[in-house]
Write a protein that binds this DNA or RNA. Structure first.
Length: 882
RNA sequence: GGGAGCAUAGCUCAGUUGGUUUAGAGCAUCUGCCUUACAAGCAGAGGGUCCGCGGUUCGAACCCGUGUGCUCCCACCA
């Protein structure tokens, strides 16, 4: 079979993904193996695959594939999140394009469109995950609004309500006065605008006046107090005194509170609890009256007393004029501030108080905090523990109602007079309401369900157990087997939104932690360190990149650039490195396939010049690489156990590229058009297979392909089990390192002396233990292009001298020697060694060091000393010879 | 404003409890090679005041203090 010049990923990737799927390799069912479970952080149904997903899911796939190859029952659950805000916005936009406004539709009609949208676009991202090779158990695909899941969310709401953890409370929301709807924070766009800061005099009850500063003079009609900093000397005498709101003469108290900054405006703040978040909190603290001076369309209400029914910005102009004529305007300054605008209608957003549903978090947070602090749940990297602790210790209550239709509708029903009941369904609510209102005549048509739906996170916090129907079918076989899950892989930005809440939900509803390890990925940024965003247009087209470089190269590129716990600066050059690595593997395969065609016959093997595995030299190469393989396999395994995926990949990369390709294959490579010993060939194939095993979790496609091309296989790498790792022989490994060092030093000498690569040299070795070199002679010859190697007891004249450790090497070539350069090189080496010796002797001559340092440290320093002395002696001898 | 984190080669990062490190890797750079798997390659090399200052210690990239610069999260200021 003819192999292509370069590796061509596309057909190979689709071939193997189909093959794995048709063999059900990704499907998991409970059995007697140990489970390894990962639930995907469900992407939004609106999502299309971007770099963040790619990183996140590549990591999960590496963990899952490794677990599968380690004999675990690996189960990776896919799914999507209904993402109420994002999806509703998409659906509204789609309707707008069709000329339909949301307000013209009933809830049922709107939801029909939303489901239509979800069915059409909601699965795109899951399809895209197949492209990057994710080995997800597709039979388990879940959705946060599946019928059972939906019911569990409702049940959780009821449960928390019964336990007294859910309550109703006021909250300031973003109100769009044109669309007459609440906006989510994401839908508010802050723009810098040129405003005016008005300084307004309020008359004091005891005479005189106090001046406050505001950019919204129309809201003074809702003022309930004036607040000053308690440490502000200017106002200390006014604490507890009264002032009058201009125009309407409402009497308001002057209260001291730390909230007020001394150096802004006049240091005196008007407090308007109905129209400002912070003022609302001050109002709560001091039990101030809440005067809502605005209607839902942005006009002034009855409570304003003045300008009733007039539009807010008109009122601003009028009230400034009226205040001026009444002599209350002290001054007006230009002022630049940030003002929120509605994404939908571009009108200025009005903060408005409304009644919302809340979860009290203190009790839920307690077990969730200690689980992480006691490392029952391990955070990787651990630095996120601090952040988590700080947030959990200062946890605020969670507002769970959203003014949206797409989501889990809040299971609360109201009578006309506002009496409400929380229940699983309308019938149950009716029963409760009949009792509450003492009205047995009440019917289903008299009660109305809450219009709002629940925060998306109120469903996704159940994800780790509800994907196994842990609540809808409690104690079922699956949840008992797979829960708690093993590893959660997610971005640190949702540590509070999602991770913390899943931990709370796990303890609250399953009495058990949801996962054992949490791996926080970095944020994917562009080359300049900017976050990837649609508006910057700096997110690359991932599917396009996969087409160009192949999925394995994309996986490689993103992982090699992704240090644990740090953000990744994405650069296409990393993908090139991945593609080049693919080619390297492919070419190594081609070399081995060439050998396959030239395996030595019995006669050839009997030939006296033929090298076999039994020869010392080839035996050394085989022996060395086998040990090297075991050594590095263990390192990789340890790194992966510590979730250092990026270091693990670097280590495998270097094992394959440097140790296997650059050293080992060159060492065992037969001479030009020579056959290869069968035993060496089979060993090589076996090593190559093991390398493919180790690399498979990172680059599944090419490794599977090479695994099958190497020889006929009756299994697939995807489900193969890792071969056991034997303990490496450090002595052999060390000899290998010395050999590499000698080869490199001699090649360097060739380079520096401008000996052409093709020119053969004659090498003389001066060493006390020539036997150690005799066993590697033919490798050495091949690697430095020498026609012969001999041993000597004294310096060889007219040669290039190279020192490695205590041994001397003389290169004889048909070239004029540059003794000046050679001497300079040796002097440089000598200076380095002498300086090194000085630093060692400084320690050893220090009595305090000898008295205080650990004995093994001193032994070490003494060895450094003798080694350095020996090297200096060698160099000095060499210098004398020049 | 409150909190968290980071600072080591041109870039991205390793560097385990302070001592085999006058500091390692990959990428980039430079030199020489179209050598019979691979020029998307091979061989080799150069490159660092471990952010500044002070301290602890026999010994500091590592521990402590301080200054500077950057990043993120939360609240965003009338």
């Amino acid at each position: 079979m003819e192999l292509s010049k370069n590796y061509l990923p596309t057909p190979i990737e689709s071939k193997w993904y189909e093959h794995w799927l048709s063999n059900n390799y990704f499907a998991s069912t409970p059995d007697n193996r140990e489970p390894y479970t990962v639930v995907i952080p469900p992407p939004n149904v609106t999502g299309v695959l971007h770099m963040g997903h790619c990183l996140n899911n590549t990591i999960q796939d590496i963990l899952i594939r490794r677990a599968r190859m380690r004999g675990k029952n690996a189960c990776w659950v896919p799914g999507t999140d209904h993402a109420s805000i994002a999806t509703e916005a998409k659906v509204v936009a789609m309707l707008r394009e069709r000329g339909i406004t949301k307000s013209s539709l009933s809830r049922e009609e709107f939801l029909a469109y939303a489901w239509e949208w979800k069915e059409k676009y909601g699965g795109i991202i899951l399809q895209q995950l197949r492209k990057i090779g994710c080995s997800l158990d597709w039979d388990r695909t879940s959705f946060t609004m599946d019928p059972d899941y939906y019911q569990s969310v409702i049940q959780v709401f009821n449960d928390l309500y019964k336990k007294g953890h859910i309550y109703r409370g006021k909250r300031m929301i973003n109100w769009d006065v044109r669309a007459k709807t609440a906006l989510s924070d994401e839908e508010v766009i802050f723009k810098e605008v040129q405003s005016k800061l008005y300084f307004i005099n309020y008359d004091l009850e005891e005479g005189g006046s106090i001046t406050i500063a505001t950019v919204r003079p129309e809201t003074i009609l809702g003022d309930a107090a004036i607040c000053v900093n308690p440490n502000d000397e200017r106002y200390k005498h006014l604490h507890g005194k009264f002032a009058f709101v201009p125009l309407i003469k409402r009497k308001v108290k002057i209260i001291p509170d730390e909230y007020v900054t001394l150096d802004f405006g006049t240091g005196a703040l008007k407090v308007t609890p109905a129209h400002d978040m912070n003022d609302y909190q001050l109002g709560q603290k001091y039990q101030l009256e809440i005067i809502d001076t605005m209607n839902d369309d942005g006009t002034m209400s009855q409570a304003a007393q003045l300008y009733i029914g007039e539009e807010r910005f008109e009122v601003r102009k009028k009230i400034v004029a009226d205040l001026t004529s009444a002599g209350h305007i002290n001054k007006i300054e230009e002022y630049t501030n940030q003002v929120g605008f509605s994404e939908r209608t571009d009108v200025v957003v009005e903060p408005r108080l409304s009644l919302q549903w809340w979860v009290s978090m203190k009790d839920l947070a307690t077990p969730a905090l200690s689980a992480v602090m006691n490392d029952e749940i391990h955070f990787h990297p651990a630095k996120f523990k601090n952040l988590y602790r700080h947030w959990m210790e200062n946890i605020k209550d969670w507002c769970i109602s959203r003014q949206l239709w797409w989501g889990h509708r809040i299971p609360a029903w109201y009578t006309l007079d506002g009496t409400f009941a929380v229940a699983s369904n309308a019938e149950e609510a009716l029963t409760q309401l009949k009792i509450a209102t003492k009205n047995n005549e009440l019917s289903l048509t008299d009660i109305r369900q809450d219009d709002d739906c629940l925060d998306t996170w109120f469903s996704s916090w159940l994800w780790p157990f509800e994907v196994f129907k842990g609540l809808s079918d409690p104690g079922n076989k699956e949840v008992n087997y797979y829960y708690p899950t093993n590893t959660l892989v997610t971005a640190p930005e949702i540590i509070f939104f999602w991770v913390a809440r899943m931990i709370m939900a796990g303890f609250e509803f399953k009495q058990e932690q949801p996962f054992k390890d949490v791996y926080f990925t970095g944020i994917v940024r562009d080359k300049q360190g900017r976050k990837m965003s649609k508006s910057l247009g700096n997110s690359p087209d991932l599917l396009g990149l996969i087409d160009v470089y192949g999925a394995d190269a994309v996986r490689f590129g993103i992982m090699i650039a992704s240090p644990a716990g740090n953000d990744i600066l994405f650069d296409e050059s990393a993908l090139e490195q991945g593609r080049n690595f693919n080619n390297k593997l492919w070419n190594a395969l081609k070399l081995v396939k060439m050998w396959e065609a030239r395996i030595a016959t019995a006669e050839e093997s009997a030939h006296s010049n033929f090298v076999t595995i039994a020869d010392e030299t080839e035996g050394f190469a085989i022996n060395w690489f086998e040990n090297r393989l075991n050594k590095v396999a263990k390192e990789v395994d340890d790194l992966l156990s510590q979730f250092k995926l990026n270091e693990a990949l670097k280590t495998v990369y270097s094992l394959i590229w440097d140790d296997f390709c650059s050293w080992y294959l060159e060492w065992v490579k037969p001479g030009f058009e020579q056959p290869i010993d069968a035993a060496i060939y089979h060993k090589t194939v076996n090593y190559f297979e093991r390398l493919m095993e180790i690399l498979h979790p990172f680059m599944p496609f090419i490794t599977e392909e090479i695994y099958h091309l190497l020889k006929d296989q009756n299994d697939d790498l995807c489900v193969k089990q890792f071969q056991p790792i034997s303990t490496p022989n450090e002595v052999i490994l060390h000899s290998g390192e010395i050999l590499k060092q000698v080869i490199t030093a001699l090649r360097d000498a060739r380079n520096k002396n401008q000996i052409k690569p093709k020119d053969l040299i004659q090498l003389y070795i001066q060493t006390p233990n020539s036997s150690s070199y005799q066993s590697i002679e033919s490798i050495l010859k091949k690697q430095i292009n020498a026609h012969s190697i001999s041993y000597t007891n004294s310096a060889v004249n007219n040669t290039i001298l190279v020192n490695v450790e205590k041994d001397k090497f003389y290169i004889e070539a048909e070239r004029q020697l540059d003794t000046v350069a050679m001497k300079a090189g040796l002097l440089k080496d000598l200076a380095y060694e002498q300086n090194f010796l000085v630093s060692v002797m400084k320690k050893l001559n220090n009595e305090k060091f000898v008295a205080n340092a650990k004995p093994d440290v001193i032994v070490l320093e003494r060895k450094k000393q003798s080694d350095a002395e020996a090297r200096i002696k060698t160099i000095e001898e060499s210098l004398q010879g020049i």
